[in-house]
Simulated assay, not measured.
Amino acid sequence: MEISFAGKRALVTGASQGIGREIVKQLVKCKAQVVAVARNNDLLVSLKQEVPSIEIITLDLSDWAKTEEALQNIGPIDLLVNNAGLAILGPLTEVKEEDVDRLFGINVKSLINATKIVVNNLLARNVPGSIVNVSSQASLVGLNNHTVYCASKGAVDAFTRAAALEYGPKGIRVNAVNPTVIMTDMGRLGWSDPKVAGPMLEKIPLRRFGEVQEVVDAVVYLLSDKSSMITGTCLPVDGGYVAS
């Protein structure tokens, strides 16, 4: 399937590592001009060394005002990937207020703010656009020691549906992808122990975890005109986990 974003500008948050980093690379391969946003300046600089055509912005997206300031003169944006995310796991009885604030600050609040900025950008130019939110299977099923994380990703899915409804008449599509465990560098560290991985793998019909490129491909498809009739959808990339 040939996908081209020639003439399009894309904004990717959480772009410095893992899934976000690979999304940036794939979008550039598909001829998009990419603005990469993340907190870690060193990793962003190394990404730009790999992909010199991109623009980089070092930014803590949890700061609403600084995000507005940094992105207000960003220029035309046609595509948005809200990939920035945070996981803080543990029993509900041990959750701290700061954990809730940090999780919702990144996973929900910053996503809403970035989407608002890009939607205003699209509306001001009276052009269509496509937005993809990186959610999680944790929005669709309960997971042990994930209570607040599950709640934050459930909010992402609800926001995705509502934004799709609100701006569909303007030609702005909003979708989400909902991955299972993905074998990023961090994923391999966390799930390399068979005792940890085994029970989760037993619930995945394909009996394996996902690879980064499998999420990237889903994101790129939903961004593209190949999915022109798809909006308000939360697409599991989970090997069938939620079907089991």
Results as ranks from 00 to 15, higher is better:
residue 142 G to P: 09
residue 71 L to E: 06
residue 29 K to Y: 02
residue 64 W to T: 13
residue 138 A to M: 03
residue 41 N to V: 11
residue 78 D to R: 07
residue 33 Q to K: 14
residue 75 G to M: 10
residue 127 V to R: 00
residue 42 D to V: 14
residue 59 L to C: 07
residue 56 I to C: 03
residue 35 V to N: 01
residue 84 A to M: 08
residue 29 K to H: 00
residue 64 W to N: 10
residue 135 S to E: 04
residue 140 L to Y: 07
residue 38 A to Q: 13
residue 57 I to T: 09
residue 99 D to V: 06
residue 121 N to V: 04
residue 112 I to L: 15
residue 107 N to I: 03
residue 110 S to V: 07
residue 115 T to L: 05
residue 61 L to M: 14
residue 131 I to H: 05
residue 133 N to T: 08
residue 94 E to D: 15
residue 56 I to F: 05
residue 94 E to K: 12
residue 36 A to R: 08
residue 51 V to E: 15
residue 33 Q to Y: 12
residue 134 V to F: 04
residue 110 S to I: 04
residue 102 R to K: 15
residue 122 L to Y: 01
residue 78 D to G: 08
residue 95 V to C: 13
residue 95 V to M: 09
residue 54 I to Y: 00
residue 55 E to Q: 08
residue 118 V to H: 02
residue 55 E to P: 00
residue 70 A to C: 00
residue 76 P to Y: 01
residue 109 K to A: 05
residue 111 L to V: 14
residue 120 N to W: 01
residue 106 I to M: 04
residue 118 V to P: 01
residue 62 S to T: 15
residue 105 G to I: 07
residue 122 L to E: 02
residue 136 S to T: 11
residue 137 Q to K: 08
residue 91 P to I: 01
residue 124 A to W: 00
residue 39 R to L: 14
residue 105 G to K: 05
residue 90 G to N: 11
residue 74 I to G: 09
residue 76 P to N: 04
residue 137 Q to D: 00
residue 87 A to C: 09
residue 126 N to R: 13
residue 139 S to P: 03
residue 83 N to Y: 08
residue 117 I to A: 02
residue 31 K to E: 11
residue 99 D to R: 03
residue 70 A to T: 00
residue 32 A to R: 09
residue 110 S to F: 04
residue 102 R to V: 02
residue 38 A to G: 15
residue 43 L to C: 11
residue 141 V to H: 01
residue 134 V to R: 05
residue 87 A to R: 11
residue 98 E to M: 11
residue 137 Q to P: 00
residue 97 E to N: 14
residue 45 V to H: 06
residue 109 K to D: 03
residue 107 N to C: 01
residue 47 L to D: 02
residue 79 L to N: 03
residue 132 V to R: 03
residue 111 L to C: 11
residue 111 L to G: 07
residue 60 D to Q: 06
residue 110 S to G: 02
residue 63 D to N: 15
residue 97 E to D: 13
residue 125 R to H: 08
residue 50 E to F: 10
residue 104 F to P: 03
